[in-house]
């Protein structure tokens, strides 16, 4: 298998980054009593958008109604946190001079095809993260840190899923 990797930019050692994120997790639990998350923010957003378009339908949906009752978007911890993640990532990229508008892909695939893969992947992640009530941030990292059994199961399933289907996605990086 011949995967072309670009010259390594100056990323942190993964262990250093892991240490930093671990400390962030500890701090977040210490302050809030819960960990970080990501997928919940999208559910909150989806619930709000549906409520604007079809309020009766949104209110009648048992699952989404719970999210609506949590308050406005600006009252949602996870939505604000997600905004912080966006900013933090941006700051990281800018300060490392890594900021670039691009559709990252291998040399052998067209941008449109890559985007189709990205959309499909996103739909699967969106659906799966709601099924699992969390994603790699909320379940694997945060749930993992408090040793939640289900979260560890999730993490195993995640890696299994990735390996099982890597073949299908490989052509994007060729």
């Amino acid at each position: 298998m011949n995967l072309q990797f670009a010259k390594q930019p100056s990323y942190w050692s993964p262990y250093l980054a892991g240490l930093a994120i671990g400390l962030t997790l500890i701090l977040t639990y210490y302050v809030m009593g819960h960990g970080v998350g990501a997928s919940g923010a999208y559910t909150q957003l989806a619930a709000r958008m549906l409520e604007i378009e079809a309020p009766a339908h949104a209110q009648a949906n048992v699952y989404l109604k719970r999210y609506l009752e949590l308050g406005t978007l600006l009252q949602s911890w996870i939505v604000i946190e997600m905004f912080g993640v966006l900013l933090g990532g941006l700051l990281g990229a800018l300060s490392a001079r890594r900021f670039q508008f691009q559709i990252e892909r291998g040399p052998g695939i067209a941008a449109e095809d890559r985007l189709v893969f990205a959309l499909l992947g996103g739909i699967l992640v969106g659906f799966g993260s709601r099924l699992a009530q969390g994603c790699t941030s909320g379940q694997a990292l945060s749930g993992g840190a408090v040793l939640a059994v289900g979260s560890w199961f999730f993490t195993l399933a995640f890696f299994l899923g990735g390996y099982l289907f890597a073949r299908v996605a490989r052509r994007q990086w060729r």
């Binding site: 992947g121 699967l124 799966g128 993260s129 009530q133 379940q139 059994v149 289900g150 999730f154 899923g161």
Partner: peptide, 23 residues
């Protein structure tokens, strides 16, 4: 996080698939 084995396992699997597909 409460434990719901099947949703967490199936959800995790789907996320793994979506992750490797979407990047």
């Amino acid at each position: 996080p409460p434990t719901y084995l099947w949703p967490q396992a199936v959800g995790g699997l789907l996320i793994g698939l979506g992750f490797v597909l979407g990047g």
